[in-house]
Amino acid sequence: MVLAMCPLCSDDEDIELVRMLDDGRRVVKHRCGYAWEHGEPPAPKKPSNSFNDLKARFPKTEDVEPKWLERAARLKAQYLATRPGFDPDVAAYWEKYQRIFSPDGLRACDPRLLKDFANSDVGAHPGNQATFNSAWNTMGDVSAGETTRRTIEYLLYGPADVLLEDRLQELLAGAKPFAMTGFKEALLTRVLCVVQPERFLSILKYTTQAGGKREIARMVFGLELPAPESVNWTLGRLLLWSNDLLHALVGEGFANQQHSAAFLWWAKDQPGGVHQ
């Protein structure tokens, strides 16, 4: 610490300590009677960007106001009383792809089954896949099938020391040379819905004009989730964290998570919510 010197007398003799401050500086007094705070204030701490700290700052179920929870509960009761459960044909289709997406299934499956999956809307509509289809047709079934297989394999069974959120982000960002062109947010999320149907809602995008997880959180629960461009949390993390949040908020009583997602899609358009 720099030697204390009286600002009035320019004298550094006979200076006594009065008290210590919480930030490490000292209040000192010169023999002339003048007292002052001595020392540099500590530099402000930068917010931590570790995975756990970032996740801890993501909105939680307890952040939803009671009036929104009450409205969602009324809509849920209305929906469950009047709307059918999940189509059994969807369950059969997804069970088929659970086998295909197993480690052994991926290695042995016909490549066309992977292309068919990308263009199917059974259980969850992934939207127009023109980019994926164009890349597939250019590459051919064998090469495109292998690239798609490796993409799915990395997402589901990649290195254990790389979190699922971060494996997803690497594929979204094209950080892996084997990542299949066009096999992005909607299709990657759809794979997760098939393989972990007890966890993943079939809402395939984080934010879209038509309504993604972010818009549904706002319109059904009055909860504002971060815009991807406003935070350095990565889209992969936002996708999974928002899914888990909506999963917790929607609660029990549905046939499965696809049934839960259908409720959320319906609920976002009901009167009395927040509009975009």
Rank of each mutant, 00 (worst) to 15 (best):
K96I: 00
E95G: 08
P84E: 10
D121A: 12
A130N: 15
G123F: 03
D104Y: 05
A92M: 08
T131W: 11
P88F: 10
A124R: 06
P126D: 13
V142E: 15
D141F: 08
R83G: 00
A92H: 11
G85E: 11
I152H: 02
R149W: 07
T148F: 01
Y93G: 05
L155S: 03
A108K: 13
T138C: 04
G123I: 09
E70P: 00
D89Y: 04
A118L: 12
E153M: 04
I100A: 06
I100M: 07
G127N: 11
A72V: 01
T151D: 03
A73Q: 13
L113K: 14
Y79P: 02
E95Q: 13
S120I: 08
L113S: 09
F132L: 15
Q98F: 03
T82P: 00
P126N: 13
Q98L: 04
K76F: 06
W68Q: 00
P88S: 13
A81Y: 04
L69I: 03
A73S: 11
T148H: 04
L75T: 00
D141H: 12
Y97E: 03
F101G: 01
R149K: 09
L80F: 10
P103C: 05
Y79L: 04
L156S: 03
W68N: 00
K67S: 03
Y154A: 04
A118Q: 10
A72Q: 06
P103R: 07
R149E: 06
T131P: 00
G85N: 10
N133Q: 15
Y79F: 15
F101V: 05
T138N: 13
R107F: 05
G145M: 05
Q129M: 14
A92G: 03
D116F: 13
Y154P: 10
S102A: 13
A108R: 14
W94P: 02
A118P: 11
W94L: 04
L156Q: 03
T148G: 03
S120Q: 09
F101T: 00
F117P: 05
P111N: 13
S134W: 10
R112V: 09
A72D: 01
I152P: 01
F86N: 08
P103Y: 03
K115N: 12
